[in-house]
């Protein structure tokens, strides 16, 4: 835990990631207790979404044969729905089934029931990877619990890659978030918005282009903003895969999202799209 004037920050490891919750609220004990409740929910969520637990929803889906259905937690269902939505919106550049063999997009492999949290597998051996969306989804979930506690001036992080901001801290326009590359640092004032970054800088070329089945080459790094952390998380992964034109087309259709990319072989961030209400500022000379 770290306490600063007006803020308290709490940390928790889950989903092989460091999560943190920063709360601007004068009663730090109340804020700590709320964060503890949110982290308890995170534990539960990890049990459902984890690829490393044999009883998780994801593992259960992976064991289904073609045509079989299983009941999942509503949170798993909601996360899968966002994943399918982003897959559709990005023309398949984001695909949680990218490593299933033979390759068929997640939307062709699973069907989500509308009235109940049920998943039907259309093609057996469906191996889903929520690595590009699960942490963002978890942040959205944590924020909703903090809202129950009437804590709205909050900033939530999953590792250094995904950040979700709710209301601005008192007397500020937003939460200042830095992003970019080691040599090209930018800052953004974030409020009611999430930003997420993906790329090969930290983990090497681990993002697979679902269409080619090989590491993505369009961008070294990509950042995306969206109203939800799950969408921002998934979009940043897609933007690593998508060429500039495709990203611009996406942003024309969804103008509330911003897109920043670092081309392969470059150290400089480029702005592909920003909504009128948002302006990232370069800090480097």
């Amino acid at each position: 835990m770290r306490t600063e004037p007006g803020h308290v920050t709490l940390y928790r490891q889950a989903m092989a990631t460091d999560f943190s919750i920063t709360i601007a609220y004068p009663d730090h004990q109340y804020a700590r207790q709320a964060a503890a409740e949110a982290f308890r929910e995170l534990e539960r969520l990890e049990g459902r979404l984890s690829a490393f637990r044999e009883d998780s929803d994801l593992a259960r889906i992976a064991r289904l044969q073609s045509g079989q259905t299983c009941v999942v937690d509503p949170a798993t269902h909601a996360c899968l729905q966002v994943a399918l939505d982003v897959e559709a919106a990005t023309g398949g550049a984001f695909d949680i089934a990218y490593r299933s063999q033979p390759h068929r997009a997640a939307s062709k492999r699973i069907r989500l029931a509308a009235r109940q949290p049920q998943v039907t597998v259309l093609v057996g051996d469906t191996d889903l990877d929520l690595g590009g969306i699960g942490k963002g989804y978890a942040l959205d979930h944590l924020a909703s619990i903090l809202a129950d506690w009437d804590l709205h001036c909050v900033l939530l992080r999953a590792s250094k890659s995904t950040v979700l901001a709710r209301h601005a801290p008192p007397e500020r326009a937003g939460w200042e978030v830095r992003f970019g590359t080691a040599t090209d640092v930018w800052t953004l004032s974030l409020r009611e918005m999430a930003i997420s970054g993906s790329g090969s800088d930290r983990q090497g070329p681990h993002i697979i282009d679902p269409h080619r089945g090989r590491p993505a080459r369009a961008h070294r790094l990509a950042y995306a903003t969206a109203a939800s952390a799950a969408a921002a998380d998934a979009l940043s992964t897609a933007f690593v895969v998508m060429p500039d034109d495709a990203i611009r087309q996406y942003c024309q259709r969804y103008p509330d999202s911003a897109a920043y990319v670092v081309p392969a072989g470059s150290g400089l961030l480029r702005v592909l799209h920003e909504p009128p209400t948002m302006e990232a500022v370069a800090l480097s000379p």
Partner: peptide, 14 residues
Amino acid sequence: TMQRRTFLQAGAAA
């Protein structure tokens, strides 16, 4: 530690 794919894949069980 049991590898992730060991229990993700139905075929791996057998």
